[in-house]
């Protein structure tokens, strides 16, 4: 990694000997123009707009009027109980889904990597969530969670338990959402872990086995340390993705944020303020707050990662 980086730098240095003239600058620019235009229109412009909108005071979206710039939207946000609640819900969701799905995916990936008989069936099963639409599968899960006819309650009853109000009880609804979220995160995470596992040379395992290492020792002293770059990557990606939880809620609860707004998440808050209430600048401010939080978490994560990722 560091090798290629330094090589890249050296290359860049030799290239810079060429003098930049109107021709060497404009010609490449023309080639790049389609890309620059698309990126500017669909990415750069919206980002700047969101940023600016979040600071507009008394902004009227339809009339496009505002009284000035300020932090009013942000103070309004944090005094809004709904937003604070949405933040809380999002944190709980991220805090449950990311660790559980990471550990679970790692276990599945290690099993799949063993090339045992029947892995292709498992592969099919675990990658299923990836090829299905969140909304469509949400409807299926809604049925599985159904109090009277759901499969899950059926099994609970078969095992002698009491049926659960998955979709109606605010606390159980959270659990239902988290389970669904974990399920949805599995395939991509498993794929990342599998590709990470396949970069680990088989000889490390052979060497450890010849020395008599048990499977626990191999897992914690060899597999996980050697996989740490992938684990770090998976954590970052999953934190970012789960922070934006919205589709799952929308699909599971008929376009409502859970029973009695109990599953109101930040993105849901943004969505409602933007589309239903026309509080565009509040929505923009909320989006930026979410961005800042995710950004901070990723920074923290990379800082921690530097200390223990060893490859």
């Amino acid at each position: 990694m560091s090798m290629t980086l330094t090589q890249g730098k050296r290359l860049a240095k030799t290239r810079s000997d060429e003098r930049i003239t109107a021709r060497t600058f404009i010609e490449p620019l023309i080639y790049l123009l389609p890309f620059i235009v698309v990126v500017s229109v669909f990415m750069v412009y919206p980002i700047i707009t969101v940023f600016l909108n979040s600071f507009l005071e008394d902004y009227n979206y339809l009339a496009n009027t505002y009284s000035g710039f300020g932090l009013g939207n942000y103070s309004a946000l944090f005094s809004d109980k709904e937003f604070v609640g949405a933040l809380q819900n999002t944190f709980i969701y991220v805090g449950c889904v990311v660790p559980i799905s990471t550990v679970l995916s790692l276990a599945i990936a290690i099993l799949l990597n063993k090339k045992l008989r029947g892995t292709s069936i498992f592969q099919f099963a675990y990658f299923l969530p990836m090829v299905t639409a969140t909304i469509a599968v949400g409807i299926v899960w809604k049925w599985m969670y159904h109090y009277d006819y759901g499969l899950i309650n059926y099994f609970i009853q078969v095992l002698g338990g009491e049926p659960v109000h998955w979709m109606e009880d605010p606390i159980m609804a959270k659990a239902a959402l988290i389970i669904y979220g974990i399920w949805g995160k599995l395939p991509f995470t498993v794929i990342l872990f599998l590709s990470g596992l396949q970069t680990i040379d088989e000889q490390y395992y052979t060497a450890a086995k010849v020395d008599g290492a048990g499977s626990k020792k191999i897992l914690f002293r060899i597999t996980i340390p050697l996989l740490s770059p992938t684990i770090a990557l998976v954590l970052i990606i999953n934190i970012i993705n789960t922070s934006k939880v919205f589709n799952e809620v929308f699909a599971l609860f008929n376009g409502k944020p859970g029973p009695g707004y109990s599953l109101y998440t930040v993105v849901y808050y943004i969505y409602e303020n933007f589309y239903h209430e026309m509080n565009v600048s509040i929505a923009c401010a909320a989006a930026l707050v979410l961005f800042a939080i995710v950004f901070l978490m990723t920074l923290l994560q990379t800082a921690v990662q530097k200390r223990w990722v060893s490859r």
């Binding site: 040379d201 000889q203 490390y204 052979t206 060497a207 010849v210 002293r221 060899i222 340390p225 050697l226 740490s228 060893s310 490859r311």
Partner: peptide, 11 residues
């Protein structure tokens, strides 16, 4: 056992 590519644990 000593391997051709050493198989030293990099971490």
């Amino acid at each position: 056992l000593v391997f051709q590519n050493y198989a030293l644990y990099p971490h």
